[in-house]
């Protein structure tokens, strides 16, 4: 089992764009250690001969035909946005931290 320490909690918080304070980091570290430790009992099972499960349902190959379906209007799309500019979503300026396909 991976050891849950404060640096791992801080790393995961950064990935999730959370900013826990020191006290929160300490309590999260304790709680996550307990939770992951509990789940860790699964490691007692020998799963060597078990195929990894890609999906809980036995379904395969659910497709749709390449046919256009009506979309919602641009007005509706941005209607609930906290801020907009024409029909754009308006968000605080972001510097490229390297997402993208």
């Amino acid at each position: 089992m991976a050891e849950i320490d404060e640096s791992l909690v801080r790393h995961v918080a950064t990935l999730a764009r959370l900013k826990p304070d020191d006290a929160e980091v300490a309590s999260m570290t304790r709680e996550l250690t307990r939770i992951v430790g509990y789940i860790d009992c699964l490691n007692e099972l020998d799963t060597d001969s078990v195929e990894p499960m890609a999906h809980p349902l036995a379904l395969r190959n659910v497709f749709r035909a390449d046919e256009v379906r009506a979309s919602i209007s641009a007005e509706e799309a941005v209607g609930n946005a906290p801020e907009r500019e024409r029909t754009f979503f308006k968000v605080p300026k972001v510097l490229d931290t390297g997402g993208g396909a």
């Binding site: 749709r64 390449d66 046919e67 256009v68 379906r69 979309s71 919602i72 209007s73 641009a74 799309a77 941005v78 024409r86 029909t87 754009f88 979503f89």
Partner: peptide, 20 residues
């Protein structure tokens, strides 16, 4: 003609957020 996981049309370029 459409997106990978929904029926919204490709070939946009018109009004922003109109193919959602």
């Amino acid at each position: 003609k459409t997106k990978l996981f929904c029926g919204c049309a490709l070939g946009f370029g018109e009004t922003p957020n109109s193919a959602l």
